[in-house]
Nucleic acid binder design. Structure first.
Lengths: 202, 202
DNA sequence: AACAGATGCGACAGCCATGTATCATTTACG
DNA sequence: CGTAAATGATACATGGCTGTCGCATCTGTT
């Protein structure tokens, strides 16, 4: 994971407690920044039970910390994609599985997800591997006739946008209840509808 | 519009040139902040051909300026909604018309739109009148059987999210070209698909 | 023309975040 | 146990943005 040189220029590895603390910092950063994206390193350290100085020792700068957060997110994404790849034969099932896991990511990595979304331009901050993995899922759905949209970026963006909206939908939203209160179900149906409705010409 | 007391506590009205300058500031603020949401008032003034001091004279604080920006956006929204209300009898036409105008808003008021979106919680920063106007459009579409989603917030959020994604789609995106390169068309079809696909139970 | 209003310029104070450094103390690890 | 590493505490320098003055100088308005 982060065994080697998080913010160190030397090749020495960190002591066990130090490594544990970097993990604490990442967790705290996610929690605090999700609430206030411009929170200071001081507040992050405090939330981790550490000092601002220590945060600086583990992460050479604020941006280094943010980088670490998105890298962490990309790792979890890859794990989720591997799970989905298992049943790529049934694209809708794979998509549903994927959405389930990504939803947990949204809950635990809200800030990092928005961070990689906000990345300027149309290039999301996602690693190329993750983007490719998502594209594969959508490609299978298209081949299976479940959707008709062809652009990989378009599919991914709509997916993430819908996911975001569903995430912050209140528990008792009528359209959520209509789906058996399963957020993942609502995402799947909405995305499939959005990406499948494109080519119908009136 | 802003004839009276933009940042003044006195009831006196502004001189003509001063009023013109507040307009310049608003335009410049939109342009600069769209590029960098955390740009300083100095840069905004510079973009308006004015001094930071003058910006402070017209808008008592940074947040006052942001408020003015969202208020301006809400005004334009209302105008767009009035145009759409014209042909509420044909909901899809009304929706299409609305989207056309809102798309121009997205181009000229990118920052303000994202600002009112980011507003914490599920309450967007839109004025109640605008929210109600949008709800009316979606309600008509639902009654006409074009969509099946029932939640007003849900419809609005999906609409704005899709709009945002389509807005930053490159000119040559395949799914855009498939719609005759009309962004508004792509929005309409995607949203209708997204909101209409909800209740289909597999 | 005269006056009030608006602006530019410069200066000042306050605030807060970042990044660096030092030193004493505690803790992990061989 | 002894050493090296990690941390807490504290201080310092830096830089940026904000908000507020005062003053000289144009410019609109009547």
């Amino acid at each position: 994971m982060y065994h080697l040189r998080v913010a160190e220029t030397t090749g020495r590895r960190l002591r066990a407690d130090a490594e544990h603390n970097t993990a604490l910092i990442l967790v705290a950063a996610e929690k605090v920044l999700a609430d206030d994206p411009s929170a200071s390193l001081e507040r992050i350290g405090e939330a981790a039970g550490l000092t601002r100085a220590t945060v600086h020792r583990r992460f050479s700068s604020r941006s280094a910390l943010l980088e670490a957060l998105t890298e962490q997110l990309n790792q979890r994404y890859l794990t989720a994609l591997e799970q989905a790849r298992a049943d790529l034969g049934r694209p809708l099932v794979a998509f549903r599985r994927l959405t389930d896991v990504v939803f947990e990511l949204k809950a635990s990595h809200r800030f990092a997800m928005e961070l990689s979304d906000e990345q300027h331009g149309c290039q999301s901050g996602l690693s190329p591997e993750v983007a490719a993995g998502l594209e594969q899922v959508f490609a299978c759905m298209r081949e299976a006739g479940e959707i008709t949209a062809t652009g990989a970026d378009w599919c991914r963006h709509v997916y993430l946008a819908v996911l975001h909206q569903v995430h912050q939908l209140p528990e008792d939203a009528p359209d959520l209840v209509a789906c058996g209160s399963s957020r993942a179900d609502l995402v799947v149906r909405t995305v499939v509808g959005a990406l499948g409705g494109v080519p119908r010409r009136p």
